[in-house]
Design a binder for these strands. Structure first.
Lengths: 329, 329
DNA sequence: CTGTTAGCGCGTTCAA
DNA sequence: TTGAACGCGCTAACAG
């Protein structure tokens, strides 16, 4: 393994000079810089990030915290997009990413997690699908010891940035469009899980729409479950003229129920994932760019690690008409 | 951050003594060991893995190389299982895992990748779904510079272990069962991608069965694509009395084609993933424990890093009857 | 502008 | 059985 020492030797300069060139320090002459760069190229030298981390103490490793508990295919797909977006961007920004599943830190206190992260030189954290009930991670965020980015949770402080689409508005938009298409008045709204931040936000958007348009609305908790949504639709859809769901998966469940009952109701979903469920109908949904959101989350965590203050970042969304199912290749 | 020095201070011993306790060296008195352990617990000390890696040079970080190029839901699901299995086991064995997508090393030569890994203190590599055409990674494996574990590829050398089910036998088993159930004679076999090792192995199993049972068989490349399989089935299934597919996804495609043609043929698949495709029929498939395979891969990479020789590890599989679709929750 | 020096936290000889 | 001392590869003062 070629080290900085060899580079220094070949270039005929001191080790620290090489280090300065590497890290873009200003006070280096053109000539020296060229010599060093030549040696680096010639030896095919790559700085040892481990040593760099140890020495500088400010090398940023970022922990990605994913919760694969809720095992559904849709989630898998979203997580892969999150992972891809984060890893690509991290490589671009020269950050190292540590993937952590919540099962690995289950049962630990915030202090223990803090100690663990510190021992791993982790100084940034990205949290996906944080539950409202998760006291430990909430505490970790409030501690402000790490640069935190929360995806889809409205938490902001000096060291915490929130990244995500405007769920309130998105739910409003997609429902409005669906309702307008068919002039509906009686809404069945199948909401997500009680412990999710987005559930609350989406519900708020739906309520606003109902108020504005003077709609009658029945709200049930579908817990993001296809089966639950199916049962809710079986029970309540008959007397309604539109079914608005807080996720695509639930929309599929609702659609299947409608087909089973042999009645037609417009349905809309949320997420814009590529589902495999065959329905043969079209529906409106909110499309999110999970890759882009995660990519942005990494940018934001870097920004926090550079000392800037936390903030809220709203990512764009779009309303699209999807057909189930488009054959996937 | 609490360091080894503080532990040593509190325990009233030298730093090196603490280190020895930590790493399980033999020549430490009970008394000293207890003192040190007490101090560790009291201070809530966690060794700094970065420093440890730098110092020992043999600390094993393991790179997980995933290729998400082929974006299908099924693949996402499998990858998540791979990731979960690997990360859980790595935490158990105290290894650090670095997740790497092939896009991040695309265009690099084997030497460049080697340099990159060395600079990251990576000494073990797990390769998933390696393509037969991937000269660079093959070269990396042959170089034997890293402890390699390949999942689902039959590559073994002094520093390389192969982990996976016996695809040849699994394909043989599942097809045999399917054929026996319906006494079929004319087989349409929809194979995977030409560049996949498993494609070759599964085909071999199928050929063996055809030979043994004196079946007539037509083989087409479905490339693991639902659409391709659908088209193949539309074209050839009519004159056959069974459709054997090298993946569940293709089996779904074939089934849809059969439904469209309004003919019945037994179908079997491969993988045992939880599909969302609605078919309403049952079929045999091979169930693999992706989590367990990946978990085992980590164990094997650790074994290699400990100096043991590469070998072949056959993981168990089972033949199950699946119903499409079981509603997922 | 460049080189010397002192660590970062830990593993590992080698004396004692 | 223990501890002092050195070094892993690198960064960051400081001195020149």
């Amino acid at each position: 393994m070629v080290s900085i020492k060899e580079v220094a030797g070949k270039a005929g300069v001191a080790i620290s000079t090489v280090s300065k060139v590497l890290n873009g320090y200003p006070n280096i002459s053109e000539e020296t810089r060229n010599k060093v760069n030549a040696a680096i190229k010639e030896l095919n030298y790559i700085p040892n990030s481990i040593a760099s981390a140890l020495s500088s103490k400010q090398f940023g490793r970022v922990a990605l915290i994913l919760d694969p508990k809720r095992q559904t295919q849709a989630i898998d797909q979203i997580f892969m997009q999150y992972l891809l977006g984060a890893l690509d961007k991290a490589r671009e920004l020269n950050l190292e990413v540590v993937t952590i599943f919540t099962s690995m830190i289950a049962g630990m206190t915030a202090e223990e997690i803090t100690g663990y992260f510190l021992s791993q030189s982790i100084s940034g954290v990205v949290l996906y699908s944080l539950s409202k009930e998760d006291r430990v991670l909430q505490h970790l965020i409030r501690g402000q010891r790490f640069a935190c980015v929360v995806v889809d949770a409205p938490l902001v402080n000096e060291r915490t940035t929130a990244v995500g689409i405007d769920h309130e508005r998105a739910q409003y938009d997609v429902a409005k469009k669906t309702i307008a298409d068919d002039k509906c008045r009686q809404v069945l709204y199948i909401a997500g899980r009680r412990d999710g931040y987005v559930t609350e936000q989406r519900l708020r958007g739906m309520k606003r729409l109902a108020e504005e348009q003077d709609l009658s609305m029945l709200v049930r908790q579908g817990n993001f479950s296809e089966l639950a949504a199916r049962n809710i639709a079986l029970k309540y859809a008959k007397n309604k003229d539109v079914v608005v769901c807080a996720s695509d998966l639930m929309a599929i469940g609702a659609m299947n129920a409608l087909i089973e009952m042999d009645i037609f109701r417009p349905v809309c979903g949320f997420d814009g994932i590529t589902l495999m469920g065959y329905v043969g109908k079209q529906m409106n949904t909110v499309r999110q760019d999970f890759y882009g959101i995660s990519s942005r989350a990494i940018e934001e965590v870097k920004r926090l690690m550079d000392g800037e203050a936390g903030r809220q970042v709203i990512m764009p969304h779009s309303i699209v008409k999807m057909y189930y199912k488009d054959i996937i290749c």
